[in-house]
Simulated assay, not measured.
Amino acid sequence: MVFKIAGWALSFQQVRTWLEKQGQKHQHLGDEFLATDLNYWFDERNIDYLWAVCTDYPRGSLQPVIVLVRRRREDPKSTVSHYYRVRELDGDREIKKQLLEESGLADEDLPWITVADPFFQC
């Protein structure tokens, strides 16, 4: 059993560009605090359908990304090394359209990914 998240992967620079476009002050923040700042921003706007998580992707690559999580759950049929990917659904794509408008990013800039054990607990 493993905890999994699924959503869109963004680089720290993409997050900074998005926050800047929204008028959110972020220049004083280190990269490690961007996900926390995004989550505060989501709370302020009553956005309960996104959760920002910083993790490595692919796992063990030491390439940190911020995942805008749309779905999360414990998966009893998966492990860290063997897991089922979560598909992007139509509802996810509707949210993505809104994100693209707000951020100014292109569709191909937001890949949909599944991450098993994003907090490295296993």
Results as ranks from 00 to 15, higher is better:
residue 1 M to G: 14
residue 5 I to V: 15
residue 5 I to A: 11
residue 5 I to E: 14
residue 6 A to V: 06
residue 9 A to C: 11
residue 13 Q to R: 03
residue 14 Q to K: 02
residue 15 V to P: 07
residue 16 R to P: 03
residue 16 R to A: 03
residue 17 T to N: 07
residue 17 T to Y: 01
residue 18 W to V: 05
residue 20 E to L: 05
residue 22 Q to G: 01
residue 25 K to I: 03
residue 25 K to Y: 03
residue 26 H to L: 01
residue 27 Q to A: 15
residue 29 L to G: 02
residue 30 G to T: 06
residue 30 G to P: 10
residue 31 D to S: 13
residue 32 E to Q: 06
residue 33 F to W: 12
residue 36 T to R: 04
residue 37 D to M: 09
residue 38 L to I: 09
residue 41 W to R: 11
residue 43 D to K: 11
residue 44 E to L: 06
residue 46 N to S: 11
residue 46 N to E: 15
residue 47 I to D: 01
residue 48 D to G: 15
residue 52 A to V: 06
residue 53 V to E: 12
residue 53 V to N: 09
residue 53 V to Y: 10
residue 57 Y to V: 06
residue 58 P to R: 01
residue 58 P to W: 04
residue 60 G to P: 03
residue 62 L to F: 02
residue 62 L to N: 06
residue 62 L to H: 05
residue 64 P to H: 00
residue 64 P to T: 01
residue 65 V to T: 02
residue 65 V to C: 02
residue 66 I to G: 03
residue 66 I to C: 08
residue 67 V to D: 03
residue 70 R to M: 10
residue 70 R to Q: 12
residue 71 R to G: 04
residue 72 R to V: 04
residue 74 E to N: 04
residue 74 E to P: 00
residue 75 D to L: 09
residue 75 D to E: 12
residue 76 P to N: 10
residue 77 K to W: 05
residue 80 V to Y: 13
residue 81 S to P: 00
residue 85 R to W: 03
residue 86 V to S: 08
residue 86 V to A: 09
residue 87 R to N: 14
residue 87 R to T: 13
residue 87 R to F: 10
residue 88 E to R: 11
residue 88 E to P: 12
residue 88 E to L: 06
residue 90 D to G: 07
residue 90 D to W: 05
residue 90 D to S: 13
residue 91 G to Q: 13
residue 92 D to L: 07
residue 93 R to D: 11
residue 95 I to F: 05
residue 95 I to P: 05
